[in-house]
């Protein structure tokens, strides 16, 4: 019974301290990182499109699956 009460008080104490001290910073970093990932991936897509334009698959034997 005593350990159970101790466990309950431990859980209650932890619940009272939520959210953790790092939460606000994590939220901020996550927002920035998600935006950055979308930006980088979009630019990467543009780069691929440019590569496709600069090196079109118009040479004989090109365009098929490689290796």
């Amino acid at each position: 019974m005593v350990p159970m009460l101790l466990l309950e008080s431990d859980v209650a104490a932890q619940a009272a301290s939520l959210p953790g001290p790092a939460f606000a910073e994590a939220l901020q970093i996550s927002g920035v990182a998600m935006l950055a990932i979308f930006a980088v991936m979009t630019l990467l897509g543009v780069m691929i499109a440019l590569l496709q334009r600069v090196f079109p698959a118009d040479e004989p034997g090109e365009g098929g699956p490689q290796s």
């Binding site: 932890q14 301290s17 939520l18 959210p19 953790g20 001290p21 790092a22 939460f23 910073e25 994590a26 939220l27 970093i29 996550s30 990182a33 998600m34 990932i37 979308f38 980088v40 991936m41 979009t42 990467l44 897509g45 691929i48």
Partner: peptide
């Protein structure tokens, strides 16, 4: 590639969740 960005959402959701539960940054 856009989906390769969107499907990283779980990383950051969990990052925030772990911080909520009191893990360090």
């Amino acid at each position: 590639l856009l989906f390769g960005a969107a499907a990283q959402f779980g990383i950051f959701f969990t990052f925030c969740l772990a911080a909520w539960f009191g893990f360090t940054l």
